[in-house]
Simulated assay, not measured.
Amino acid sequence: MRSVMIALMSCGLASVATMAEARELKTNDRYMCSWGAGTAAKAQELKLAGVSLYAARQKLQTYKFTKPWMRMMAMGITEQTYDSPSRIKPEAIRQGFYEDCVRYKLARR
């Protein structure tokens, strides 16, 4: 009897954990993660090309952003990218940023 209860409880916990991981992100969250990943990749590309942080900031000022929060977010992502000693390729940065962002958004739910 006790082993049956333990088996049922473990199956129940496993199904709850699976449901928590399978939750979908909102479209806005996916867009934000994708946009941030692209921004980080672009910043890494500029950094590896030898463009100074000042010049990268100036370049960001010329971009037209569709949402008010994007400019400051892009500045923060660019500064963090330049502060990092990483020399990883921009595509790897894009992938890692996107995966971490999605993981963060799911964990917040």
Rank of each mutant, 00 (worst) to 15 (best):
M1G: 15
R2S: 10
S3N: 10
S3R: 08
V4I: 05
M5H: 02
M5F: 05
I6W: 01
I6P: 01
I6S: 02
A7S: 13
L8C: 08
L8T: 14
M9N: 03
M9I: 07
S10E: 00
S10I: 00
C11H: 03
C11E: 03
G12V: 00
G12M: 05
L13Y: 00
L13K: 00
L13T: 01
A14F: 05
S15I: 15
S15M: 04
S15E: 02
S15A: 09
S15K: 01
A17M: 13
T18M: 13
T18P: 02
M19I: 13
M19H: 11
M19Y: 06
E21I: 04
A22S: 14
L25P: 15
K26I: 03
T27C: 03
T27L: 11
N28S: 15
R30I: 09
Y31V: 08
S34L: 06
S34R: 06
W35Y: 13
W35F: 10
G36C: 14
G38Q: 15
T39M: 13
A40G: 13
A40D: 10
K42M: 06
K42V: 11
A43S: 13
Q44E: 15
Q44T: 15
Q44D: 08
Q44I: 06
E45N: 06
E45P: 04
E45T: 12
K47M: 04
L48V: 11
G50N: 11
G50S: 14
V51A: 02
S52A: 04
S52E: 01
S52G: 07
L53E: 13
L53A: 06
L53Q: 11
A55V: 04
A55Y: 00
A56N: 12
A56G: 08
A56T: 10
K59R: 10
L60I: 09
Q61I: 08
Y63H: 13
Y63E: 14
Y63Q: 12
Y63N: 15
Y63I: 15
K64F: 10
F65K: 07
T66N: 11
K67R: 14
P68W: 01
P68F: 04
W69F: 13
W69I: 10
M72K: 05
M72F: 10
A74D: 07
A74L: 01
A74P: 01
A74S: 13
G76R: 04
G76H: 04
G76C: 02
G76M: 06
I77G: 05
I77K: 01
I77C: 07
T78D: 00
E79I: 04
E79F: 00
E79G: 01
T81D: 05
T81F: 07
T81Q: 13
T81A: 03
Y82N: 09
Y82K: 02
Y82P: 03
S84W: 00
P85Y: 02
R87H: 12
I88A: 05
I88Y: 06
I88M: 11
I88W: 05
K89L: 04
K89E: 13
P90Q: 08
E91S: 12
E91T: 09
A92T: 12
I93L: 09
R94D: 11
R94G: 08
Q95W: 08
G96M: 09
G96A: 14
F97T: 15
Y98P: 11
D100N: 12
D100T: 02
D100L: 03
D100M: 04
C101V: 03
V102K: 07
Y104W: 02
Y104K: 08
Y104I: 05
K105R: 14
K105Y: 02
K105A: 03
K105H: 02
L106K: 14
A107K: 06
A107R: 14
R109D: 06
R109F: 05
